[in-house]
Amino acid sequence: MTVLDCVGLSCPIPVVKTKKALKEHPEGLEVLVDNVAAKENVSRFGKTMGYTVSVSDEAEGVWRVGMSK
């Protein structure tokens, strides 16, 4: 699965990068984020685009948002 690193980025940039990456990888994506707003916003984007979204802890303060069809 393609991994998009959005650690260190604040909203709305992670959503914009996720949108762009999903155009190149419509099968799905994993997005790394390090703030609550990015975790929630990227999850909302994935769900609205019709993906199944799962969130897991990656490290202290970092989440992995998985999107699959």
Binding site: C11, V36, E40, F45, T48
Partner: peptide, 12 residues
């Protein structure tokens, strides 16, 4: 836009 995750940090 909210459904697509365009939410400011202040919302959280």
């Amino acid at each position: 836009l909210a459904s697509f995750g365009f939410l400011p940090e202040g919302r959280y």
